[in-house]
Each structure stands twice: as structure tokens, then as C-alpha cells.
Amino acid sequence: MIDDLQDFTPPPSAPRRTRGRAPWIIAVSLLGVALLATTTLASYLWLVSSQWTSQNDELRAEATELGSELGLAQSQVATLEEQVTTLDGQLDATTERLSDLANEEAHAGDDVEYLSDLIEAYESCIANYDETLSDALRNGYTYSNSNARSVQNDVADYCDSLSEAFDEFVADAG
């Protein structure tokens, strides 16, 4: 019996059972870690996704607003361009009219100066006639018929030239 007892060897199942549980623990741990990692990853991706979605919504709203603003601005630009075209036409007409008026005024100024010169010359002409006549009356004895005629002719020629100049001016003025 003792021999039997001494010959007794424990069954090999106990250590085999310990070695068989370890892979399960490792596998479960790995699965746990993997699950944790996957959950973390999913949470992170969900967070990032929601951030992008949120910003996308924000940008989309902003883009829509900008688009409507752009549409409004383009419509205003079109209106303003029409107004600019109209004003350009009016400005052209105004500048042309202003040039015409400036030209007319300048010509009127020329005419005024010319006529002033002519009036001065007429005055001189009348004064010459007057002086010649007075001189002839005062000092009639110094005048022969011929030189009196000569003086008279000189003055008359001068005055005639003025009349011609005036007639020319009137003809030019239309």
C-alpha cells in the first residue's frame, strides 16, 4: 500500500489546465485593449468628424451668405455700370457743351476786343476829321484847294478802310 502510495504520481491535468488558461487571459486582454483602442479611435474619429461637419456647416452657411451677397453686389454693379454708362454719356455731352460755350465765349471776347479797337479807330477818325475841319476853318489861308482835298482824302481813306474792316467783320460773323 505504501509502495502504492510512493508510486503515486499526480495527474498531469493540473499544470495543463494552467497553461491552457493563459492564452485565454492574453486573448481576452488583447481583445479588451483592442476594444478600448477601437472605442477610443471611434470616439476620436466621431469627434473629428463632428468638428469637420460643424465647420463644414458653418462654411456652407457662410458661403451661402457670401453667395447671396455676391449676387446682390453683382446686381448692384450691373445697375451702377448702367448708371456709369448713362453718366458717361451725360458727361461727354456736358464737356462738349462746355467746350462749345468756352469757344463761343472766347470768340465773343475776340469780337469785343476787335470791335473795341474799331471803335477807338472810329473815334480817332472822327477826331481827325474834326481836327482837319477845324484847322481848315481856323487857318483857311494856308490851305489850297488841292492840299485840303489831299488831307480830306487821307482821312476819308482811313475812315473808309475802317468801314470796310467793319463790313468784313459783320460778314465773317454771319
Partner: peptide
């Protein structure tokens, strides 16, 4: 290998805006 893959995966994860 799993740790390496996890770290590598972290490297290619998209950033937030």
C-alpha cells in the same frame, strides 16, 4: 505588433479642422 500598429495608426489619423 499591435502596439506598433496602434502607434502607426495614430500617425495617420485625421486632425480636426
Amino acid at each position: 505588433a499591435a502596439s506598433t500598429m496602434l502607434l502607426a495608426a495614430c500617425g495617420v489619423l485625421p486632425d480636426g479642422p
